[in-house]
Simulated scan of single mutants.
Amino acid sequence: MKKKEEVTITFYAAECGEFHDFGEYTKCKTLEEAYKKYQKYCRTSANMCPAIEFSIHDPDSIYSDMEYPLPLSSKDRGDLELVPYYNEHPLVNEAIRQVEQLQKQQEKKKHRDVSR
Rank of each mutant, 00 (worst) to 15 (best):
P69T: 05
P69F: 01
H111Q: 15
E88W: 07
C42H: 09
S73R: 00
Y63R: 12
S45E: 08
H89C: 07
S115I: 12
H89F: 08
I96W: 11
M1P: 11
K2Y: 12
E5Y: 11
E32T: 11
L72I: 12
Y12I: 09
D60F: 09
R43F: 06
P90F: 06
R97F: 04
L31M: 08
P69L: 03
D65Y: 07
D60R: 11
T8V: 09
I56Q: 09
V7D: 08
L91N: 04
E18C: 02
A46V: 08
K104H: 14
S45P: 04
R77V: 11
P90N: 08
K3N: 10
A46Y: 14
V92E: 01
F11P: 11
M48F: 13
V7T: 14
N93A: 08
I96D: 09
F54T: 01
V114C: 00
K110F: 02
N87P: 04
C16W: 00
F11N: 09
T44D: 15
D60A: 14
K108V: 10
S73V: 03
H57N: 15
F19A: 10
K3H: 10
D76G: 09
E32R: 09
F22T: 05
K4I: 14
E67D: 06
T44P: 02
K29D: 13
I62W: 02
S73D: 04
P69E: 09
S74T: 14
V92D: 03
